[in-house]
Amino acid sequence: MRNIRECKLYVVSGEQYHPGRGLLEVMEAAIRGGADIVQLRDKEAPKRELLRKAEALRELTRRLGALFIVNDHPDIALAAEADGVHLGQEDLPVEAARRMLGPDRIVGVSTHALPQAVAAERAGADYIGVGPVYPTGTKPERAAVTLSYVSEAARAVRIPFFAIGGIQPGNAEDVLAAGARRLCAVSAIVGSPDPEEAARRLRGYIERWEFESPSGMPASGGVRLIVNGREGVTNAGTLLELAAEYRLADRRVVAERNGEVVPRAGWSEVPVREDDRIEFVHFVGGG
């Protein structure tokens, strides 16, 4: 099973956004597009129906390797063997949910201001939602908290936080620039005519931002070379420094320079020069 810390894109169900299309169809598309954690949120359905939906989503997420969270109801989460529960500020306190679910299941909390975030972290929440960043149709009554709360959370919160509320491909980069590393979307994914593509775009922004954030950005000026078939410019003096620029230094990858394998132990000694052809490769699924 996944760890919540590995999760980057959170999708919350909202069947009102996709009339005529099934819950499972839409959520499966979202997962295939890159959502790695899924929440069942349905304020209308009677509990028995909610449980049926939860069981179906449990089966789907287990098959596709995504985490599954139930909104509001620890009993439904337990009955459906969900990975955890998500609580609003008016729902059960974290401690009560924790007693019901035990230490291994996930408890997440919606927060709308820094004091709530700090309290949730102290109470033992595994993650928090930070928002709504923008005004949203999912929660029309709640005022947007704006990007400043995202930046505060990025500085003060140590557990994973998902920015939520009105997030869509058009504003995702602003939210990431404010310090978010994880995003949550409802209507932008499930209300899209193509939920898989919507999820893929959001996921793409998250990963690109990680890649381009200061520690990972290859600098400009310096040596021109070709890395994995693509022209690039680097200030790196050695293969190890080049790998670090691409955030590959601590990953299980193998390097080749101008057609010759360079054993990892030699990365720090092997120079990178103008017009070098470097390959970084790894194992992928195959037959």
Partner: peptide, 28 residues
């Protein structure tokens, strides 16, 4: 069995398939 491919330099979160087998005694 596995294949060898270039690392996707844009998607650093993507990870090698090997992480899913590290706990098993296998011939690669």
């Amino acid at each position: 069995t596995f294949a060898i491919r270039r690392v996707n330099l844009d998607g650093v979160a993507e990870d090698t398939v090997l992480q899913h087998f590290s706990d098993r005694e296998l011939v690669y």
